[in-house]
Design a binder for these strands. Structure first.
Lengths: 233, 233
DNA sequence: GTGCATCGACTTGTCTGACAAGGCCGTGCT
DNA sequence: AGCACGGCCTTGTCAGACAAGTCGATGCAC
């Protein structure tokens, strides 16, 4: 019995991604639609969609008449789960650190903005999520979902769609980061305490307090993320 | 004579985007591949690719058997030029402000990180760009390119691919923002002065000085971006 | 009446083959 | 040496077909 996990183009794109990311391209050339079609025994339509996926990750350029060209690795979309899934573990580990550094930059700033703008309804909602987190401290997966929702809700309260987009686009890294830090002993109850501190700063509409609580929370997570022994996925 | 500006799927996607963004969908339902194919007189393959584009903007969900469903507007990719191009001007104007706010958060932080990490070669390169900017103060388009390159180079120096991605992904907004602020009288020579200050902070590897110069630069730009009369594109 | 299985209509996924349109490069002419 | 042309390869678009999955309505059994 065969389980169909993904569509064909996604699978093909995955192989191409890993081949590109590890430098396994014949002559450094991205294969053409026809070459892909032949090698993977799929129709040209599927090969075509696979290449479109690579293009959407900013990994290649596609133009009529010209063959598909590789783009600089510095510009690839390292926020996409599909890309992350197919690059080597050590790169993922390093990216995880980089993401955490980025998070330390904008999450405290987001807390500051949110503290100045959030509505009573949003405060109420945060309180609910916080309570639910407390209730689910024995269920890591449920806790993780609530944790993400908590941080997203704060970001949403900034009324800034650009910040929101950054946050949303990086949610794979947010999940990965928490999955790791939640492995520490008594991590969940401690996290609840820290989230409560953030909540209180926000509920008091005190930017400084919210920011400080957020920094405190992030520095706890950092320790887990920096450890090399933990599997990244 | 007809000029072909874009591929067919892109054009169709554009119309669908504007229809979705302005609430002009019949019954709130995203049309199916066949409906699109009939309405726009294109093949199903083109209709299909158009929908894939919408999906890549996080505007819709696609799954076999189910018809295409609309996703919440809060999660759309407001960094994509294609999406921006097809939403109303007042939204673009508002998003421009939001982008500037986001920029005020991470660009100073990037300056801090860069000041601690950049190599001699990178300092040299920044100096070259700065000099080129000075030379092109009478050519707004060329100046804009150099300006973007200057800021990208600083971000690149942080050695953080997540930050880099944010910066790269938001380059449409970076361009738009500068195109506006460069309309002010004597904007370019003033900008060169401010960039020189940033450069000097970085070259001295002085995080505080680089950060302060960056903030100064951003606050000048802010004034232009906040003015309502200037066309956003 | 309620619950469930079945069927049919509709949707997206994949395949095949064909031609159009555009870019690249070597040939051969000037 | 330079340029125009033409073949070859590439991506873009079209058409029609069948597979596979979802959803709701129908109708049967209880």
């Amino acid at each position: 019995m065969e389980v169909k996990l993904r569509t064909l183009p996604t699978q093909v794109a995955g192989v191409l991604i890993s081949r590109i990311a590890t430098g396994g391209l014949t002559g450094g050339l991205v294969p053409s639609e026809q070459q892909i079609s032949l090698e993977f025994a799929v129709s040209r339509a599927v090969a075509r969609e696979a290449l479109k996926i690579l293009a959407s990750l900013d990994m290649v350029d596609i133009a009529q008449g010209r063959r598909v060209t590789l783009r600089p690795a510095a510009e690839w979309d390292y926020l996409s789960p599909l890309l992350i899934e197919w690059i080597p573990d050590d790169q993922v580990r390093q990216l995880l650190r980089e993401h955490h550094e980025a998070r330390q930059i904008f999450e405290p700033a987001i807390a500051v903005e949110a503290a100045q703008r959030l509505t009573d309804a949003e405060i109420l909602r945060l309180g609910e999520i916080l309570e639910a987190m407390h209730q689910h401290e024995d269920d890591p997966e449920a806790y993780l979902e609530l944790d993400l929702e908590f941080h997203m809700a704060i970001c949403r309260a900034t009324q800034n769609r650009i910040l929101d987009r950054f946050m949303y686009a990086s949610r794979w890294w947010q999940s990965a980061s928490r999955r790791i830090s939640n492995q520490a002993p008594r991590a969940l109850p401690l996290a609840t305490l820290q989230h409560r501190a953030i909540y209180e700063g926000l509920a008091a509409r005190d930017p400084k307090k919210a920011e400080a609580a957020m920094r405190e929370h992030l520095s706890t997570n950092m320790m887990s993320v920096m450890v090399d022994e933990v599997p990244v996925r």
